[in-house]
């Protein structure tokens, strides 16, 4: 698309979100949507990150705080369960880690290049909170 000439796009300063018709988009999950190539869902901001959140399902209580406070629609929740992280759209802000209430946290930030298994292997123990 970036190489298209002036005669190779639809007129008007406009874009389409989907290819073809969509019905009930408010109840259609992302994996079932016919996104157009112009929908930012098809793009990635993974290279914005220096650190990435890693999800450890062993400690997760599915409270969904991470889901609601994620600014980048990058917490994947299905059927009321936290499933994982969308690394194409996560910008590494770490809000999910901050709002995670479990002990130890179910989400922690690691260096972007860190292997996920390695991150999970080194997960901290439950913290004894003072007071």
């Amino acid at each position: 698309m970036i190489d298209n000439g002036w005669d190779e796009f639809e007129i008007g300063a406009m874009l389409r979100s989907f290819d073809g018709a969509v019905k009930d988009i408010a109840t259609t999950l992302q994996e079932d949507r016919p996104y157009s190539k112009n929908n930012s869902f098809t793009a990635s901001v993974a290279d914005w990150r220096i650190e990435k959140p890693v999800f450890n399902k062993d400690y997760c209580i599915d409270c969904q705080f991470c889901w609601i406070y994620c600014p980048d629609i990058s917490i994947i929740s299905r059927d009321k369960k936290m499933v994982g992280i969308d690394y194409d759209h996560c910008k590494g802000c770490a809000i999910c880690v901050e709002v995670c209430p479990t002990n130890p946290k179910s989400l922690l930030m690691f260096e972007e290049k860190m292997d996920e298994d390695e991150a999970l292997a080194g997960w901290p123990e439950k913290e004894n909170k003072e007071k």
Binding site: I2, N4, G5, W6, D7, F9, I11, G12, A13, M14, L15, R16, S17, F18, A21, V22, K23, I25
Partner: peptide, 25 residues
């Protein structure tokens, strides 16, 4: 059934093409 985004932003990589298209038409 066909959501559309009107009034996008175009910078140096796309603005000229849009203006050229309008002028051409």
């Amino acid at each position: 059934d066909h959501p559309v985004t009107h009034g996008v932003q175009t910078e140096e990589d796309w603005h000229f093409e849009h203006k050229a298209r309008q002028h051409h038409d």
